[in-house]
Design a protein around this nucleic acid. Structure first.
Lengths: 214, 214
DNA sequence: CTCTAATACGAGAGTTTATCGCATTTTACA
DNA sequence: TGTAAAATGCGATAAACTCTCGTATTAGAG
């Protein structure tokens, strides 16, 4: 009955997909677009990734593409956010095991390994991450993800060492997660054997106790 | 009245400027282009940086621009390489002070501070660095720079601890320089007070001795 | 069956990078 | 100093993309 002018679905978050379409067929196309985007990135790298490639491979027209995603960055952002979510789950799981101060170091080591293995299992994650680094809006998405990770670490430490001042803890957590990410991103550029060496070396630099925080 | 077909000057290195022009006036224009590029990046950020901006501000025509630089990346690359060179000098200077194993940790701390201060003194360096991250060719330039820095650290350590195996040393140096860069890049996103805290925290994580290497 | 909203479409508008042929200036050298 | 050759300068426009807009098609409720 409504005579409204075809109200275009609005993007809920900057850098991400528009509101999920209601019809079944639409949702399939939405996933198809993301799947093709992933394939293309894996094959040609983040630099050569073009909207026209998606049109060609997925069979979805330009106009339709832009009904699902407000712009190119949104496609990359949606892929990135999915992988970030996987990473957050890893971290949550590994930090859940922390029930005493001496559990912290092993947990951080496990996070390092989890992250490295995630990149090894799906090398395209690296391309997706690189693509996010090329765009200001997407950089903020990654920064937000890092903030969440940092918060998770803070929570875990607070659980086993309630006395640590909040500001000190935030500083420590943000730095630690930043360094873990940097070390892993460095490692994945190396052949596996060297990578293992680097990560082992890195683990010895991670804090063994909470002495410096109390 | 020219007759011969103008032999175009050829690029000596990928990602960098073409061969330096011979005439005085040309060299001035070359510098003028770089100066304008720096200004524009400082004002509008690396994302909004356009060739047409340079044309407008510098008064150099498109055709001339492309006589000095093979492409847009080359302008960014040339700026980046200049700043990388400054950074390498800092590192060289700070590492020159290492004459005994116990000098290493203070030297690494000084490198951290030097890097942080460089970014604080010239915030545009951050924009330039971000621009390099958006381009595969320029990423390689930065990777090469990191390799040089890593080599400098290796040399310094070898001087005071000749027994360390080469492979171990290379791994350690590359990781250490990577972490320093990551920590500083993290710090510059924070307000100065927090940044100092983070960097102080980070310094405590840097290796105090060479026990793990011998 | 019909009517409306949702979905689909693709030519082309709008941007931005990079090229090409020719004009102008500088240099080398008789 | 005169002149040819090389170097430098120029800007319209080709080329490569992203994204929009008006319209056609399809799904689903009544």
């Amino acid at each position: 009955m409504a005579r409204r002018k075809a109200a275009p679905v609005v993007a809920p978050l900057p850098g991400l997909a528009r509101l999920a379409p209601t019809q079944q067929r639409s949702r399939e196309r939405f996933e198809r677009i993301l799947a093709c985007a992933t394939e293309i990135m894996a094959e040609k790298g983040s630099e050569a990734f073009r909207m026209s490639d998606i049109v060609e491979r997925s069979g979805v027209a330009f106009g339709s593409l832009y009904q699902y995603f407000p712009d190119k960055a949104a496609i990359i952002g949606t892929l990135a956010e999915r992988h970030n979510a996987v990473g957050r789950d890893c971290v949550r799981r590994d930090l859940a095991a922390v029930t005493a101060p001496r559990d912290l170091h092993p947990a951080l080591c496990r996070i390092v390994d989890s992250y490295y293995e995630m990149f090894m299992r799906e090398p395209v994650v690296r391309d997706i991450w690189q693509a996010t680094q090329a765009d200001r809006g997407l950089q903020k998405l990654d920064a937000d993800d890092m903030a969440v990770l940092s918060g998770l670490l803070s929570d875990a430490i607070r659980r086993v060492a309630p006395g640590v001042p909040a500001a000190t803890l935030a500083t420590f957590s943000a730095l630690t997660m930043t360094l873990i990410a940097a070390a892993v991103r460095h490692a994945i550029t190396l052949p596996p054997k060297k990578a293992r060496q680097v990560l082992m070396q890195f683990k010895t630099m991670l804090p063994n106790d909470l002495a410096g925080l109390a």
